[in-house]
């Protein structure tokens, strides 16, 4: 289990992480969401033992990961770049991971490779961006580590490949009981793959919950009142967004369907229509609530 308690980290006086607390139980697919510079990659580097924490505690299976070989044997980290591997062939890359991970499975590698069918002896510099990403991911998955941390794992992959890679990761979780943490700007991927997610903004956790809870807790309401409504009209629920367009009022509110319906119906609407939100929409409205919206930037 991964536990971060009140983690702080600053670069040159700028707080990159500020009191981050979250827990990732074993065997989960965990998504890290956040605006650019929110601290997603930094958390992954902390978890991989690349960075050292300045404040708070970070433990994996109860141990500090920094400079801890035994623990790092169980961790594989893939960052969002592939430039460092451009001189390698896929065979060379496989040997690189095989050299350092005693759990590396040749068999698994062959299996994954047979699915993607990438050239083994060509330099990665000749690969497309997506092919490079595939090559790195199959090597990481073949390491069969307990923890797999992927920064922008689906970056550059076409839709078919996304599904294939996703399935590979699911297999890894099922076969090894692996815990996968991935950060992505592609919220649809997170929504489809992860069961838990954390939203980061300016180095702070906005939420860290199971996605079902997250998505079940924010709803879009389309309704109509005789006069334009405002957030103060619904004190029982938290309104993230309200917009009046003619006689129609659109609301984004937190709470269960019943709570929201009850609060809205108190104001005698002409009709009430409650629709679940996509993760993309939740991200946008949550960030808007924190002052991070396109028109402000």
């Amino acid at each position: 289990m991964i536990e971060l308690k009140d983690i702080t980290l600053d670069f040159d006086g700028n707080k990159v992480l500020d009191g981050v607390t979250m827990t990732v139980p074993d065997g989960r697919a965990f998504g890290l969401l956040g605006s650019n510079g929110a601290g997603k990659s930094t958390i992954l580097r902390l978890l991989s033992g690349i960075y050292k924490t300045q404040g708070g505690t970070l433990t994996i299976d109860g141990e500090d990961v920094y400079d801890n070989v035994k623990l790092k044997e169980q961790i594989c980290f893939i960052n969002d770049e592939t430039i460092q591997f451009t001189d390698y062939t896929l065979k060379g890359l496989k040997n690189y991971y095989k050299k350092f991970y005693r759990t590396f499975s040749e068999e698994r590698f062959e299996k994954l490779h047979s699915i993607l069918n990438l050239p083994m002896n060509k330099r990665l510099s000749t690969f497309s961006k997506g092919m490079k990403r595939q090559a790195v991911v199959i090597c990481a998955l073949a390491c069969c580590t307990k923890y797999l941390f992927l920064d922008e794992a689906f970056d550059g992959l076409d839709p078919t490949m996304r599904i294939i890679v996703k399935n590979m990761m699911i297999d890894a979780m099922l076969d090894n009981g692996a815990t996968i943490i991935l950060s992505s700007h592609n919220l649809k991927e997170i929504q489809e793959f992860c069961d838990t997610a954390a939203l980061l903004h300016n180095g702070k956790i906005v939420f860290c919950r199971e996605l079902d809870t997250v998505m079940g807790n924010i709803r879009k309401v389309q309704t109509s009142f005789s006069t334009p409504a405002c957030a103060e009209d619904f004190p029982e629920i938290e309104i993230l967004h309200i917009e009046n367009s003619g006689s129609v009022t659109n609301l984004i509110a937190k709470g269960s369907e019943e709570e929201i319906r009850a609060a809205v119906e108190k104001c005698n609407p002409k009709f009430v229509d409650i629709i679940p939100l996509t993760l993309d929409e939740i991200f946008i409205y949550e960030m808007e609530g924190l002052g991070y919206e396109g028109k402000n930037l």
Binding site: R45, S48, G49, I50, D67, V69, K70, K72, E73, I75, C76, F77, N79, E81, I83, Q84, F85, F100, Y101
Partner: peptide, 18 residues
């Protein structure tokens, strides 16, 4: 002194001494 290389090397199961 290169971030991408540091990500690769420093995430490997090695201590700084090794």
């Amino acid at each position: 002194y290169t971030k991408t290389s540091a990500d690769n090397i420093l995430s490997l199961p090695l201590t700084a001494t090794q």
